[in-house]
Design a protein around this nucleic acid. Structure first.
Length: 161
DNA sequence: GCCAACGTTGGC
DNA sequence: GCCAACGTTGGC
């Protein structure tokens, strides 16, 4: 039975995808904290703006790479604020339709990143009897910010560290 | 690089 | 409101 985002809400646990060439967990560790700019999908926007709160835990996922998977954890350290890259004409995330008076795009800030000893790969997740129910393991699920069950968060952390 | 799956856009 | 065309995501 395919599951959808709402089956996992409300939650305090998340998975956030990033292409490591653009922004990796090492970048976040080095920078201490950073805002999650560039999300241009309404469902992901809604989750960040309306659901993610300070203290929520995040699985940091590397996508579009040789071995996609969860590479560590982070914590939401600041709730969503308007994504200023939307009105920066020089940014690749520029969006002429986003009005600074009524922002379309929002971003949370992550910090407290910790890298796993072992990547928990997408293949690992798909093979695991329970984790294979995670949204990230489902065919065609492209959402870059996904809610996660508390038990699945714990299981991934125990596999990774 | 391929391509399936999905989201968005725009004509009607 | 429908849906075809297009663009993007992201695994493989």
């Amino acid at each position: 039975m395919p599951k959808s985002v709402k089956d996992y809400l409300p939650t305090e646990f998340w998975l956030m995808k990033s292409e490591p060439d653009a922004f990796s967990i090492d970048d976040l560790i080095r920078m201490k904290s950073e805002h999650w700019d560039g999300v241009r999908n309404y469902q992901a926007r809604n989750l960040m703006r309306d659901q993610m709160k300070v203290g929520h835990r995040v699985l940091f996922y590397h996508s579009s790479t040789a071995v996609p998977g969860v590479v560590g954890t982070a914590t939401v350290v600041k709730e969503a604020i308007p994504d200023h890259t939307a009105w920066d004409r020089k940014s690749k995330y520029f969006d002429a339709k986003s009005d600074p008076e009524n922002p379309t795009w929002w971003m949370v800030t992550l910090g407290k990143a910790k890298k796993f000893k072992n990547i928990v790969t997408l293949a690992d997740i798909k093979e695991h009897p329970r984790l294979r129910e995670m949204l990230v393991a489902q065919k065609g699920q492209r959402l870059s910010i996904q809610p996660v069950l508390a038990d699945d968060f714990s299981e991934i952390v125990s596999l990774g560290r």
